[in-house]
Amino acid sequence: MAKIITVTSGKGGVGKTTSAASLGAGLAKAGKKTVVIDFDVGLRNLDLVMGCERRVVFDFVNVIQDDIRVQQALIKDKRLDNLFILPASQTRDKDALDRDGVGRVLDELKQDFDYIVCDSPAGIEKGALMALYFADEAIVVANPEVSSVRDSDRIIGILNSRSKRAEEGREPVKQHLLLTRYDPDRVEQGDMLKTDDVLEILAIPLLGVIPQDKIVLTASNVGTPVVLEDSSIAGQAYQDAVQRLLGHDVPMRFIEPRKTNWFSRLLRRSA
């Protein structure tokens, strides 16, 4: 039976899709049969970030409304045998997903997969609520920045009160914090919230810290999940996060400023 993991944030543009793609690909690479589902109906992007946009025939909404079987809509990744993508519809709106329909599709996928990773849309409206409703675990993606942390706090509250688990009084959704776009230099300068500051406010366990890295843009240009870029720091940070998700104890990396000589440090500080 698959575990359902929702990647959510409240605030938009913090790195949910980037993270869902990388965690999904990382889990698949670790041998887990994984499907990543795009819940961002009307603004689908997961297909682009994962590099399968030209192979989309049917989508999530077709499966729920149009009698298309879920197997017909699943796209198998070209790089990893264990990885599948269920794209969102680009032409419908967020109301196209109804709770019973989504529940049915998830139940079916649960039989076949080890992990179901749900890429949530931004906001706290219907689409985001739908993406988190069925979650067993949630990855709250935040940037070290005031509005993102505040919105994360809201989404944590919503996970605690509006998920299926909360409604049924079962064990609460297990939550993880994924801090992305972290810039150790700016943290050291005192201009960016540090990991501990964010943890103190949000008070959920830390899954990982993903540094700000140019590779994220270039990887998205060609449709490669960042986690597969082995030599990049963001890629390695995502690999570590996957290991932690699988229950392994891995130390945090890339949270200290990179060592440079005093002169370039000085230049950077005064920039």
Binding site: V146, R150, R154, S161, G190, D191, D197, I201
Partner: peptide, 26 residues
């Protein structure tokens, strides 16, 4: 000035107010 400290202090306050207003959250 270490603006991150201001960010943290402001966040602590607003998060408490949000939680009280919505009745949600820890």
């Amino acid at each position: 000035p270490r603006t991150a400290d201001a960010a943290k202090d402001r966040l602590k306050l607003i998060v408490v107010r949000d939680r009280a207003a919505t009745g949600e959250g820890p």
